[in-house]
Amino acid sequence: MSLMSFITPSLVNSAVQSITPILLAALAGTLCGRVGVFNMAMEGQLLVGAFAAVVGSYATGSALGGVLFAIVFTVLFSLILAYGATVFKGDAVVICIGMNLLASGLTAYLLRQMFGVSGTFSDPAIVGLSKIRIDAINTIPWIGWIFSRQTVITWLAWILTAAVTIMMFRTPVGLRMRGVGEDASAAGTMGVDVLRYRVLTVLFAGGLTGLGGAQLSLGTVSIFSEDMSAGRGWIAVVAVMLGRNHPLWAALACVLFGVADALSVRLQSQGLPNQLTDVVPYVVTLLALALSHRKRLKRRAAETLTAHA
């Protein structure tokens, strides 16, 4: 079996789709990391976004309404991290663990109370995101398949990746953010309001993740199911680590994950049980993490001090 027959355009198309929420979450993670807030609540933020998107779409009858709901509610949800880890000086790791649990519990609770179902909620009234069809390239093999028939959020995700990168490395705001993350007290003495930068960045990042959540529930399926973020937020955390808070490298890590995900889908269609193929992306992620840290290995006893303490 040749590689070309193994990887089909439709596989790539679905991989690009499935990367989108992770990419947005990873982008959010790099932004937070750059201002010195360790965000590992993306799993919960995606879930809140996905739920809010379904609620919004169901209530307003429009996908745009769903997307707006997702952004607004995820930003609100992110207030916990934005203020908890900055103004109130809480431990970001603990706050994020709590947020992930809160998201899981709260969405499950509201699912039952608002829609009277548990598990999965699907309804014709949930309007999904439409795919953008670019007629100019639509019929071109490969290119048409990959770049056409994607949701506006997928397009936005890649545009935002570029925009965030430029913002981070070419604008005053980006310079200040990088300074805040590297040495908050130094940034403070230069008159940069560290808390404000942190709070606003975490909230903006929340908006990005909310967008990712909307893609999750409205992008391909138009349903919400409990814990549907299913580890994507954690993959995003790893992407941030692999990319060392650089948006482009983090995006590359997301692509790697997308490839692994596509591979697992493909293996499944070859007859391998999905319990095994589902594991592939996580194993790839773990291996990538191991390889990326190999170089950095310092033979120093004191180095084993907890990396994120």
């Binding site: 070419r170 604008t171 005053p172 310079l175 200040r176 990088r178 300074g179 590297e182 040495d183 007290s185 130094a186 940034a187 003495t189 230069m190 008159g191 940069v192």
Partner: peptide
């Protein structure tokens, strides 16, 4: 000038100097 320098080690000299008061051209530094 603080005793413990308040510098960003990963940034260049000019980035450190103009930090917080950057000369801009449009939205860019």
């Amino acid at each position: 000038v603080h005793q413990a320098f308040k510098l960003f080690n990963s940034l260049t000299v000019w980035e450190n100097v103009v930090y917080g008061m950057e000369p801009a051209r449009g939205v860019f530094i």
